[in-house]
Structure formats: structure tokens, C-alpha cells
């Protein structure tokens, strides 16, 4: 009976929502940035699954319904972009230049560092799209010969890192305005960073959302170009 219940969607979906609600509460109560709700939820669920010896596949019987909502959420980003279209059009030069810089610097720094530190080719290739939002990153990794689920995990790790310390890091290096900060966090930490920026201020959040959409497009294009030349 137990196994049957665990592999019904109730378990994975219920666990995800329940843990996330608790993580959000913890984050609000403590106000500590390293209690980022996404990072805290992922860590807690992994601990629960490992302790209960529950395989990831069993968890995903329910988890997949939560993951499904990521798709329409990406489509939904069109709405805040539309309502901010005038401000965005007025500042298209810094936006496009910033996103292009992020895409190139991400591919070069992630692959270059992994290669220098002795990573195997599939690992190096899995890192190439790590600053791109999960659904895009997975299809890129597949196309260029990386390991898609490893890419997905690294994408989320990158996102958590950017969400936990992105705004603080930006202020530290002298980036204070909402446009460059939103671009920096959105282009490096995609949707998870965007969720944090939406809490900081609306404009930074919208720019962050734009950055992660466009960054995905540009990185997908650049990497498929590189692969078609060298592949």
C-alpha cells in the first residue's frame, strides 16, 4: 500500500508544495538570503527522499505536474514585457549589449574553467548552457552532446546561487541601478534569479525576465552555430 501511495502523484506534488510553503515561511521569518526558498526546498526534498530511500522517479510521478507549470510561466512573461514595452524600447542598446555579453561570457567562462580544471568532455559541454533557463538548457545540452539532466541540475544550482547573492554581489561591485542589476541577475541566474528580482523591485524583475528569455535565445543560437562549425 505504501509503495502504491508513494508512486501516486499525490506524494511528489504534495511534498513539493508543502516543503516549498515551509521554506517560504522560513525565508520570510528569518529574512536570511541563504534560506532562499528554492534552494532550501530542493535540499530538504533531497534529504527526505534519501532518508526514506525513495527514488527520484517515484518523486517525479507528482513532481512532473509542478514542473509542467514552468512551460506556461515562460509564455506568461510576455505580459509584463508588454506592459513595460516603452521603457524597454527606450533602453534597447544596453539591454541587447548586456545580454549578448552575458551569453558569450557564460559559454566561455563555464566551458573554459571546467576544461582548465580537468572536466571530461560531456561535463564541459553540459556546463555550456548553465546560465540558460531549464527548458532551453536541456534542449541545448541534448543538441551539443552534454548530459541533459546534469545540465538541468547545474542550471538550478546557478539559479540558486544568483538568487541568493546576486543583488548583494552587484551592489558590492558598484552596480546599483535596476536595469543593469536586473540584466545581470536575469542573464546569469535565469528564472530563479528573476523570482528574487521581482521581490526586489518590479522594473528589475521585468528586465530580469526579459534577460533570461533573450539570453536563452541568443545562447541557443550561438551554441548551435559553434556546434555546426566545429561539430
Amino acid at each position: 500500500m505504501w509503495n502504491e501511495l508513494l508512486s501516486s502523484p499525490l506524494f511528489g506534488a504534495g511534498l513539493t508544495l508543502g516543503v516549498y510553503a515551509l521554506a517560504q515561511k522560513t525565508y520570510q521569518r528569518t529574512g536570511r538570503i541563504f534560506f532562499n526558498p528554492v534552494a532550501l526546498s530542493i535540499a530538504s526534498i533531497i534529504v527526505i527522499l534519501l532518508l526514506g530511500r525513495i527514488p527520484y522517479e517515484t518523486y517525479m510521478e507528482g513532481g512532473k505536474y509542478v514542473l509542467f507549470l514552468l512551460g506556461p510561466s515562460v509564455v506568461a512573461l510576455a505580459v509584463p514585457l508588454y506592459s513595460r514595452r516603452r521603457e524597454i524600447m527606450q533602453r534597447k542598446l544596453p539591454i541587447l549589449a548586456g545580454i549578448f555579453a552575458s551569453s558569450v561570457s557564460s559559454i566561455v567562462s563555464a566551458c573554459g574553467l571546467a576544461w582548465l580544471l580537468g572536466g571530461s568532455p560531456p561535463v564541459v559541454l553540459s556546463l555550456a548552457p548553465k546560465s540558460v533557463t531549464t527548458p532551453i538548457a536541456i534542449s541545448i545540452a541534448e543538441k551539443i552532446g552534454g548530459i541533459p539532466p546534469l545540465t538541468a541540475a547545474l542550471v538550478v544550482l546557478t539559479g540558486c546561487l544568483g538568487a541568493i547573492c546576486g543583488p548583494e554581489f552587484c551592489r558590492l561591485i558598484g552596480i546599483r541601478n535596476s536595469l543593469p542589476m536586473g540584466l545581470a541577475v536575469g542573464a546569469s541566474a535565469h528564472g530563479i534569479g528573476t523570482a528574487r528580482m521581482l521581490e526586489e523591485n518590479r522594473m528589475a524583475g521585468v528586465i530580469s525576465g526579459l534577460a533570461f528569455g533573450l539570453n536563452g535565445l541568443i545562447t541557443a543560437f550561438l551554441l548551435s552555430l559553434i556546434v555546426s562549425i566545429f561539430g
Binding site: 513539493t16 508544495l17 526558498p37 526534498i45 527520484y56 513532481g63 509542478v66 514552468l70 538541468a152 538550478v156
Partner: peptide, 10 residues
């Protein structure tokens, strides 16, 4: 942010 959790558990 919630929708990224299952992929992260992976």
C-alpha cells in the same frame, strides 16, 4: 520559483 524545485531535486 516553485516550478523549478522538481528539476533541481534531479
Amino acid at each position: 520559483a516553485l516550478f523549478f524545485v522538481p528539476a533541481g531535486v534531479g
